[in-house]
Design a protein around this nucleic acid. Structure first.
Length: 211
DNA sequence: GACCAGGTCCTTG
DNA sequence: CAAGGACATGGT
């Protein structure tokens, strides 16, 4: 009898939690999480941190400051995390959205998660992963983040579900606890960076799934 | 030098 | 709908 997708996901989550414990991941203000979520698109986090530091030094590391800044100045500050022209525009779109739709981050934080998600997906340059990252890490909602790594690990584990269904599966399995959601995604990324890239993800290396 | 990074959008078939 | 390309810098 084969293990169900839910069962496999439970095992993956348990194994990774055992392996990594609690990871320090994305501790920052809501503003910084939102900005970082855009900057980290297809980009290493270490480069994003440098950009965030540049933005801080320029006084540009907030949604309000981005809203008032010249695009050119944003571009210079975020250059080292790549795609800097398009990302500067995306940051502008996001800041315009927050300001126009809610007035402030504080107001935004009072809205229900599903409404925030729908509105974020309407912003040019924000897709599912970026929206969910903002919700989960910036606003502490129980929204699971599916990224390319999650898909890789799940595929190797023989879970055939794709993006939307995969997200539902994780959200069905995980307890309704924001810290658990944040950690589970962090664990997957750490594991994938360590094992699924260098080893080309030819086989599932999560031991509990091989027996 | 080749290849990849915590995506998203746009164009084609 | 799936596949392919553009966006760009920085690390291995």
């Amino acid at each position: 009898m084969s293990v169900s997708s839910s069962g496999k996901i439970e095992k993956i989550i348990r194994f990774l939690k055992e392996k990594y414990g609690t990871l320090e991941w994305w501790r920052g203000t809501t503003d910084e999480v939102m900005i970082g979520a855009i900057l980290t698109q297809q980009t290493r986090w270490e480069n994003v941190e440098r950009s965030l530091e540049n933005l801080r030094q320029q006084g540009l590391c907030s949604i309000a400051a981005i809203h008032n800044a010249e695009c050119h100045n944003i571009e210079k500050a975020i250059m080292c995390s790549g795609f800097y022209r398009i990302k500067a525009r995306r940051l502008k779109s996001l800041s315009a959205h927050v300001t126009g739709e809610y007035g402030s981050i504080e107001r935004m934080a009072q809205q229900p998660a599903d409404r925030l998600r729908e509105n974020l997906l309407g912003v040019h340059g924000i897709g599912e992963e970026t929206a969910d990252s903002i919700l989960c890490y910036g606003f502490s909602h129980q929204t699971f983040v599916i990224d390319a790594y999650t898909e890789r690990i799940c595929r190797c584990a023989g879970i055939t579900a794709k993006r939307p269904a995969l997200k539902k599966l994780f959200e069905k399995v995980l307890p309704l606890d924001t810290a658990v959601y944040q950690q589970a995604h962090a664990h997957i990324v750490e594991y994938a960076k360590e094992y699924c890239v260098k080893k080309r993800c030819n086989e599932c290396t999560i031991p509990t799934l091989n027996g």
